[in-house]
């Protein structure tokens, strides 16, 4: 009888574990950023053509010298959810542009500047958008895939990272948090 109980226990453990796996589904990359609460690395990237006049040739992110909180969104032209959320980012910029900066970074999109500009024009994006040709900034920021959106406090520290598509409600809520801190 004792042996039978051992068999049942092992089967229950494995069954439970794999059942958990089935319920969870395919492993995804929704992984908490390791930099939560810490300063994010600085960078300087070339600004996309349509916005040169407004923002200058490059955009510099210096965590030590931010005058507003900043929301950094990584996107690529081949990424379908990025297309879906482009209007949301534009909404956030229109709504909260005075209090926060919204920055788009085109990444993991090898040398596709032209497609990037077309993407911006398609959605009428007016917030600063830069290109990370080598994907180096995305690696520095611990990016797994696109889209990912980082919410940075005024002191340059990471408040929250969102994996996948963002919504207007989520933007409202997170920006309110950013402004409170």
């Amino acid at each position: 009888m004792k042996r039978l109980i051992v068999v049942i226990l092992v089967a229950t453990f494995l069954g439970g574990l794999f059942l958990f796996g089935l319920l969870r589904g395919q492993p995804d990359r929704n992984i908490e950023s390791n930099r939560l609460g810490r300063e994010m690395p600085g960078f300087e990237l070339p600004v996309h053509a349509p916005l040169l006049a407004e923002f200058g040739p490059t955009f510099e992110f210096n965590p030590e010298a931010l005058d507003k909180p900043i929301i950094v969104n990584f996107w690529a032209t081949w990424c379908a959810p990025c297309r879906d959320e482009a209007p949301v980012l534009e909404y956030a910029w229109q709504e909260y542009g005075d209090e926060v900066i919204v920055l788009g970074i085109q990444t993991q999109d090898r040398d596709n500047q032209r497609a990037g500009v077309a993407f911006m024009n398609e959605f009428g994006l007016t917030f600063p958008n830069v290109i990370d040709n080598s994907s180096r900034v995305s690696i520095d920021w611990g990016l797994f895939g696109v889209p990912e959106t980082y919410f940075i406090r005024r002191d340059g520290t990471l408040a929250y990272k969102h994996v996948g598509i963002v919504t207007n409600e989520l933007m409202d809520e997170r920006i309110a948090e950013l402004l409170q801190s």
């Binding site: 068999v7 049942i8 089967a11 494995l14």
Partner: peptide
């Protein structure tokens, strides 16, 4: 087929190892 194979795996475990345990 994930759940089906899982169920079969557990069944195989219980039946075969259970049988060994009973006949030990």
């Amino acid at each position: 087929v994930g759940p089906i194979f899982l169920a079969f795996f557990i069944l195989v475990l219980l039946f075969s190892f259970g049988l060994i345990a009973l006949r030990w």
